[in-house]
Design a binder for these strands. Structure first.
Length: 212
DNA sequence: ACCGGGATGTTCT
DNA sequence: GAACATCCCGGTG
């Protein structure tokens, strides 16, 4: 098993739509907590009415306009802290929302933080839950994800992204949700991915594409 | 399993 | 004052 390597800034310095599917199966690390990303969403600056950066820079979204490879954390619905990886290219305000992950280490800490979650599968299922499991808050906004011993980082442990990720529209948006915005990517069939829409949870097998 | 609503507070119009 | 990249609980079938 190769040593885990921190993703370099060049990984993030691209369109969020290119970065998002490649973040699947990477490992998010903060202190002793580690979890494998299985669901993400791309948000793309000026062309994306669903993005926080669509209407320009504000105090809240300033981190999105900063260096690719930064962590953009925002407060959602008066209750939850959600985390994004800032992307590019250059200073283009793109980002990838981290929506769900498989707990790998630091399970005691996660269980304590996620007291309401009964099952391990729910520790980091959904962006608010993921933020709570990792202990994110305002002080994490702007953290550099590319530092090998940084406070938060994303590493490659040798697990490749799925060859054919699940793809769908994004969750919970009033704007930017048509078929032109297939910006959500997930590991098809993984139980840690928040179920969407109707029907069965566990679609698996050869093809794997649009929804679960 | 599916749906409806309340919690809770920052951000922007 | 409305909207919001959400979560959880309780009702119903």
């Amino acid at each position: 098993m190769p040593a885990a390597t921190v993703l370099p800034r060049s990984f993030y310095d691209r369109d969020a739509l290119a970065v998002a599917p490649e973040l699947l199966n990477k490992v998010l690390v903060a202190g002793e907590v580690r979890a494998r990303l299985v669901e993400v969403e791309a948000y793309r600056g000026a062309d994306d009415p669903g993005a926080h950066s669509f209407r320009g820079r504000t105090p809240r979204n300033a981190t999105m306009f900063g260096a690719p490879g930064s962590l953009y954390v925002y407060f959602s619905y008066g209750m939850h802290w959600c985390a994004n990886a800032v992307c590019g290219p250059g200073d283009t305000p793109h980002a990838v929302l981290l929506r769900a992950a498989i707990p790998l280490a630091g399970l005691d800490v996660m269980r304590e933080r996620r007291a309401k979650a009964r099952r391990e599968v729910d520790y980091a299922r959904g962006p608010g839950s993921l933020g709570q499991a990792f202990g994110f808050d305002r002080s994490f906004d702007g953290v550099d994800l590319t530092r090998p011993r940084g406070r938060v980082r994303i590493v490659d442990d040798g697990t490749p992204p799925p060859a054919r990720p699940g793809v769908s529209t994004r969750v919970g948006l009033a704007a930017g949700k048509g078929d032109a915005f297939l910006y959500r990517f997930f590991v098809a069939g993984d139980p840690h991915v928040r179920r969407s829409g109707s029907g069965g949870a566990d679609r698996r097998g050869g093809g794997a594409r649009s929804d679960q």
